[in-house]
Amino acid sequence: MELVAAIVVGGLFGAAVYLLLWRTPVKLIIGLVLLSNAINLLIFLAAGLTRGKPPIIPEGSLRAAQAVADPLPQALILTAIVISFGVLAFTLVLFSRTFKTLAATHLDEMKTTDS
């Protein structure tokens, strides 16, 4: 299971970088989306996959009866998803506004602030 997940993470990272290097705005955004998904999966994987053992402590006792899945990475990922949702939504608005204002379709057309 770990191996499959690791390959998926690698594939997502690869795809993301490929799309980022492709110099059109839409692919850039899709690349950023894939990148954030790749990282979320990576956090999940790095913290260890535990199957079918939810971190729920039975009522009346103070600790779980058996080893359970670590809930913290899930909390981290949830936070990261919310953040990347917000940031990417903003980026989307910014990109659409920019490309409308500049009437550009290609990132190479945006060099005026570089020199």
């Binding site: 917000g86 939504a89 903003f90 989307l92 608005v93 659409s96 506004r97 409308k100």
Partner: peptide
Amino acid sequence: GATLIIILSLAEE
């Protein structure tokens, strides 16, 4: 608030 700001301004464009 945040969701409506983003989506309504996108929809208005």
